[in-house]
Design a protein around this nucleic acid. Structure first.
Lengths: 385, 385
DNA sequence: GCGCGTTAGGAAGGGCAACTTACAAACGTG
DNA sequence: CACGTTTGTAAGTTGCCCTTCCTAACGCGC
């Protein structure tokens, strides 16, 4: 009987908001399912053919949709003229600020295809300097676009609020930096910012065919982050800090539980000991396996995977996730580490939770955050993703 | 710049849906903030005074709202006539099926005040028998109502989907039982069902003043369950099984990490070993402290609290929760167990997560699930909670 | 006492969004 | 080739919220 509940109807809804929503539905469907006639769209959405025609006209006028000629298949009745999303008509600038020493960016079209890319090495920029460097970098990317730009999407390390203000990013020396507002003003374009791991999960969700009902992406690089989508929405958390998994304690003092000891809890950059980051970050993993032979290596990686599994089991259980995705160097994460993590989660959760779970490497290679940054723009400007 | 994103615009929105939403906003505000004039409501919601007047008229016509005379305070201008929610005008039947041997129910008004209650002892009913008993119990409660009923809300153990079908509830022998549909047909009333712990978190949220942005309720009784609200919405999970925290492994073999050993991992009813339920359920806790003096007792309870903290730390971190609420016998949970759990979570998470966190006992005593069941009805029938 | 500015509530009229009904065009089928 | 089917559009209706205007009720200052 229960259908849908908005626990907090927080802001007014006008008829025009409904129309915007319905327009986005059409785009969403064309984006995910490909070309379709007005009549098909009407059947799928539940709107009438008349209304869909009207909405389609506005989309065509905006240059977002184009007619594609009638369908060839022989069926009864007048063949419908199929509509397609003009994924080539607009472009998006996407920027990944994850790395400490490189700025990574691209110009993408609406289907996520890379039209141009740009990488720049930077050295230990801090505070305003770093902000200026990002702005300059964004300017250069904007200049590379050869179609109208929908906006700029940025995945940044640190805690980022819904308005695109970086609440804190210690590595950059950013505290309360209005990144979106600053860039938006300077570039005269919409700018959307999210935490890099949160962006990554959006990328997986839209371009990696991840499940809508419950995904967690673990990003492993210099540090460890996570982004979560449950029930079709990104989890932001009380202080916009959702996904801070890198600094959960996973190695206790005198920890010899799993017959493949990790040694004593290591000091972490955050000042505490035994954080997930101290065993799962790329530098930590490389250091751990340095000089080991293949067999020893597998044991060492599995031990880390087991720790990851122990930390993830309560999260997977609590949220009834259907998918956990690892993003990072596949030679480190893809083998014994992944296997051990999945096995551990299955062992430590009740079958109803663990059985339906998949744990896999990303299929987006290194572009998850970049694509996710584009999704920020897609969903904010066009209402879908 | 980013404002709000609906990652999955899934169904059409008509102007009348917008109106329903706006109506619910008014009710929501009157419910949580108390009486207000039309002009105040217009300012708060962003709607015009004209529109609010029109919506208010429809609410008055429906008997949900009444005028309350002008405000006494002397201020410039014409004093507005305040509107109040008629919390006494309708009633809700709420049923808590958590206990194995008792049916627990009440007739509540819209403010959660109990107008009648009913408890019935049942003995090991299974399958269809149990279903018949619940229906009969609901009938009796419906007969106790002396105002028009909005509907029936039920908190049930097990996995319950959004349509009120109990996917599985092993203790009841229910597998795929259309509880909501069956009762709705028999009673000719709207019936809404949710997992008992999920209902409990809704109860805390609406009647316990819990944070909207991130709460987790741990229900401790015969078993252990959990319900989660993040970003203002209940978490359902991929298979509607979100909150299954009771069967996460928390005690490993050879576990002597915390100098207050819990002994070897105990066998759990689910067939595995070392589940949270084997140390945190009420029977397990009572068994553990039986015959201990006060000091030993505190140590034993703290050891369990520490285990709970270890399991919750990754969840709190991943979701950036602001509140964890314990529901169950305060003499077991409220003291050293709570303290140890909170301390453990703080130790094992980065300060940005742990500092803002509160972990406390429920203030709803044993009625969390019952009130939550009422919230199911409130939010489904009137659109607020 | 009396105008004046301010606030609350309602009435009238307009614009927009989706609906229903009706129709022409284009296609297979018998 | 008539017929039913399907598509897309045109015309008119209904519903919802808006802007604009008006009246009522209050405090304030002269």
């Amino acid at each position: 009987m229960a259908t849908k509940r908005a626990l907090r109807p927080t802001s007014k809804v006008l008829p025009e908001d409904g129309r915007a929503h319905n327009r986005a539905m059409l785009l969403q469907h064309l984006f995910h399912t490909g070309p379709a006639s007005r009549a098909e769209l009407a059947r799928v959405t539940g709107l009438t053919r008349v209304t869909v025609s009207d909405l389609a006209a506005s989309l065509i006028a905006d240059g977002l949709v184009a007619e594609l000629g009638p369908r060839a298949e022989g069926r009864v009745g007048k063949p419908g003229t199929r509509l397609r999303l003009r994924t080539d008509a607009f472009q998006i600038v996407a920027i990944d600020l994850t790395a400490d020493t490189r700025l990574h960016g691209a110009v993408l079209d609406l289907s996520g295809d890379r039209k141009a890319r740009k990488d720049v090495a930077v050295e230990g920029l801090d505070g305003d300097e770093a902000l200026a460097a990002v702005l300059e970098f964004a300017r250069e990317l904007v200049a590379l676009a050869d179609r109208p730009l929908l906006g700029v999407g940025i995945g940044s390390p640190g805690v980022v609020d819904a308005h695109g203000t970086v609440i804190q990013a210690p590595n950059r020396g950013w505290y309360g930096v209005g990144l979106a507002e600053t860039l938006s003003r300077a570039l005269s374009l919409p700018v959307h910012v999210a935490n890099d791991a949160n962006a990554a999960v959006l990328g997986e969700f839209t371009f990696g065919a991840a499940s809508a009902s419950g995904v967690l992406v673990v990003t492993v690089g210099q540090g460890v982050g996570a982004g979560i989508v449950v029930d079709g929405a990104l989890v932001r958390g009380h202080g916009d800090a959702a996904g801070e998994l890198g600094h959960v304690t996973v190695v206790d003092e005198r920890d010899d539980v799993d017959h493949a000891p990790l040694g004593r809890a290591q000091q972490c950059a955050c000042g505490r000991r035994g954080c997930l980051e101290t065993v799962l970050s790329v530098p930590a993993l490389r250091h751990r396996i340095a000089g080991l032979d293949a067999a020893e290596r597998d044991v060492a990686l599995a031990a880390v995977g087991r720790r990851l599994g122990v930390a993830l089991a309560p999260v997977v259980s609590a949220l009834n996730l259907s998918e956990v995705i690892l993003s990072g160097p596949p030679e480190l994460l893809g083998g014994p580490l992944r296997d051990a993590a999945l096995r551990t989660i299955r062992e430590r959760t009740i079958p109803v939770i663990g059985t339906g779970l998949d744990l896999r490497m990303t299929r987006l290679e290194e572009d998850g955050t970049l694509l996710g940054a584009a999704v920020l723009v897609l969903s904010a400007e066009l209402g879908f993703g």
